[in-house]
């Protein structure tokens, strides 16, 4: 990786470009490989298909990146999505207007975030523990909300799930807006910079006059609202809530995407661009596995190996000349 550092110095490339060179290289290599092995991979319809599939993950990952910048962590986002999907489906099924149902979904997410944030800040419970516990509660709550059966959302959200604007799916547009919002928050707003300061040194941030507790709670609430949005997006794609949708396994994918992108688990350092690369990597690998029809027993091996390679490559970057 010395060569990369040298190149950066000699070519004067902005760090934003070279920072993710390793991860981007892994992504490009995988795309090249898939293009050679499968003629459909590099077609527009398939790429749009992949992007639509990762939209939900991208929305969650973008919010989580800002939260992790501040040293927070939320393992319950996927489970919040599960509950929102179930409740909104229930509301739609009982004839509630789609707008009201959606607002309820977002507010529900905000409530979950508020609970997480208050437990983490007021009771000083580690975020990992807090949100793992709420995740378990919410996974159960989702089953209760749908009584263990599929709940059809009817056609109210179909337009959102399948519609396009100039050939771009609505879901993808929403994801891009959220990602852009997260990136702008981190780069251009006091709120985002304060999040980084809190993650980098919470004591110094507090002594410098940043209201650390309030800020942290707000971040959890914002993440809950994004989980609400993601739930509505997911429901619009699935058309129904069913047991096993979203939940902890979605969450693990989201956390993996953020961490592989280079955002520090301990806060203070976050990159939305890296998160986007991480999300794309996971989405493309899942798509590629289906296209190449890799045997089911080898699928998790393949995903795991890709994750490992990406994580190692990304880590090598930090081993610059010291």
């Amino acid at each position: 990786m010395n060569s990369i550092s040298l190149n950066r110095a000699t070519l004067g490339l902005p760090p934003a470009l070279t920072r993710h060179a390793g991860l981007a290289a892994v992504l490009v290599l995988i795309c090249l490989y898939l293009s050679v092995r499968s003629e459909v991979f590099a077609t527009t319809p398939n790429l749009v298909n992949v992007l639509r599939q990762v939209a939900v993950m991208a929305v969650l990952a973008a919010g989580l990146t800002v939260l992790m910048a501040a040293g927070g962590l939320d393992f319950s986002l996927g489970s919040q999505v599960a509950v929102v999907v179930a409740v909104v489906a229930r509301l739609l099924e009982s004839g509630t207007h789609v707008v009201i149902a959606s607002i309820c979904g977002v507010l529900l997410g905000a409530t979950f975030g508020l609970v997480n944030g208050l437990v983490v800040t007021v009771f000083k419970v580690a975020p990992f523990v807090t949100t793992l516990a709420t995740a378990t509660v919410l996974d159960g709550a989702a089953l209760i909300a749908m009584k263990g059966q599929s709940v059809s959302a009817g056609g109210a959200l179909t337009d959102l799930g399948t519609g396009e604007l100039l050939g771009i799916p609505y879901l993808l547009l929403i994801a891009v807006l959220v990602i852009g919002g997260a990136a702008a928050t981190l780069r251009w707003t006091r709120f985002g910079r304060d999040a980084l300061a809190i993650g980098g040194n919470a004591v110094a941030a507090r002594l410098g006059g940043i209201p650390v507790l309030r800020h942290t709670v707000m971040l959890y609430v914002a993440n809950g609202m994004l989980a609400g949005l993601a739930g509505i997006m997911l429901l619009s794609r699935l058309g129904a809530a069913s047991p096993g949708t979203a939940g902890l396994h979605l969450e693990l994918t989201v956390v993996a995407a953020v961490v592989i992108g280079g955002t520090a688990l301990h806060g203070g350092n976050a990159t939305v661009a890296g998160t986007v690369l991480g999300v794309l990597l996971l989405g493309i690998v899942a798509n590629g596995i289906n296209l190449l029809q890799i045997d089911s027993f080898y699928q998790s091996v393949a995903v795991g190996v890709v994750l490992l390679v990406a994580a190692v490559v990304n880590q090598l970057r930090h081993r610059g000349p010291h």
Binding site: R52, N287, N290, L291
Partner: peptide, 9 residues
């Protein structure tokens, strides 16, 4: 998700 990918391949 698998069915969507099936439609592509």
């Amino acid at each position: 998700e698998v069915a969507e990918n099936l439609l592509q391949s």
